[in-house]
């Protein structure tokens, strides 16, 4: 019973990965919009883009980690 609840929890935690996907898409989309408005400034901001993507994705990875912990470690 407890294990099954853990599995349900893991599935719920996996939703977080989808949320992170939205976040990453937001970052990349806004970057693209900005880059199209001002293409000359785009190249200098790719590092910032990747940092932003990394931060947004980190939280999704946390959710994934929680799911894994619930699946395998509980």
């Amino acid at each position: 019973m407890e294990g099954e609840l853990a599995h349900i929890g893991a599935g719920l935690a996996a939703i977080g990965s989808g949320a992170a996907a939205i976040g990453v898409g937001n970052v990349a989309g806004n970057y693209l919009a900005g880059a199209l408005r001002n293409p000359s400034a785009a190249a200098s901001q790719t590092a910032t883009l990747f940092i932003g993507i990394a931060f947004a994705e980190a939280l999704g990875i946390f959710a994934f980690l929680v799911a894994l912990l619930l699946m395998f470690a509980v």
Partner: peptide, 16 residues
């Protein structure tokens, strides 16, 4: 924490 988990998590997630 995020620095380490990001790397391991991404690599592990892909392989899994």
């Amino acid at each position: 924490v995020s620095h380490s988990i990001r790397l391991a998590g991404n690599v592990m997630a892909g392989h899994a």
